[in-house]
């Protein structure tokens, strides 16, 4: 595939997730304004930070008059799952120039990570992955900044946007990515334990439950995979 085609395919594969992000971008813009942030700060956070859930939590903390270090520490914790994402992408970026890696890091979100790992899973030999990645990421980024601006300008006139349920598009897209990736017992156990643990920890503060869940589910997956590998080796002997 040519780079341009890869770029466009990346953007296209991200469409359901873009749709799901629209109300959140608008609500973020409106919420930040009503929580006392200026227009430029509200937009600048989307432009320079670009981290959906961390932005929401930060502007909520701004409204509750939390101290700056508290807000920043929370943002850091919420973003730690991105470090896991980046670590798992390491094998695919080792040949790339640092500038490109920095751009990819800046644009790393749940959505682009999901779409890109799905692509890698289907086609591990794929060349030109950065083009695909950037197509997905630029589409997410453009949409996020635009929707933030919409939220700033007209957000107050659009009541109960989150009740439209557009985030269901994210749920079904993630399901379409995860389910086909489940090919053995270790992977199924990892997925099911992650779902269960996420529900048990859903009320932990600042999405720390999500991070805890990831660690538990990964440990279960690795343990079962090692056990299966050992059993296979013993039957061979």
């Amino acid at each position: 595939m040519t780079p341009v085609r890869l770029f466009l395919t990346g953007a296209r594969d991200t469409l359901p997730l873009i749709l799901a992000a629209i109300p959140f971008g608008i609500v973020y813009g409106a919420l930040a304004m009503s929580n006392g942030l200026s227009e430029w700060a509200t937009l600048a956070i989307s432009l320079f930070v670009f981290a959906g859930s961390a932005q929401f939590i930060a502007v909520t903390l701004v409204a509750s008059a939390a101290a700056l270090p508290v807000i920043l520490l929370t943002v850091f914790v919420v973003n730690l799952r991105h470090m896991l994402y980046a670590a798992s992408l390491m094998p695919w970026v080792s040949g790339l120039p640092q500038r490109l890696r920095a751009l990819m890091a800046f644009w790393l979100t749940d959505e682009t990570y999901a779409v890109v790992t799905n692509r890698i899973g289907k086609d591990p030999e794929l060349t030109g992955l950065p083009w695909y990645y950037c197509g997905s990421a630029l589409a997410m980024y453009g949409n996020w900044v635009f929707c933030t601006w919409l939220g700033i300008t007209v957000g107050q006139q659009l009541p109960s946007l989150t009740d439209w349920g557009l985030d269901v598009a994210m749920v079904v897209a993630f399901i379409g990515i995860v389910v086909p990736a489940l090919r053995n017992r270790a992977q199924w156990a990892c997925a099911l334990s992650a779902g269960t643990c996420a529900l048990l920890t859903h009320d932990w503060p600042h999405q720390s439950g999500l991070l805890f869940t990831a660690v538990v589910a990964i440990a279960i997956g690795v343990t079962l995979e090692r056990r299966a590998a050992n059993t296979a080796r013993e039957t061979l002997v």
Binding site: L84, Y85, V178, C190, A198, L210, R226
Partner: peptide, 26 residues
Amino acid sequence: LEQALRFVPIAVLSAIIAQTTLVRDG
């Protein structure tokens, strides 16, 4: 660590799916 990182997409996406599907207003 490499083996563990291969489980990241399944673990985190499943967790997000479960929470978004089943948690409404806390």
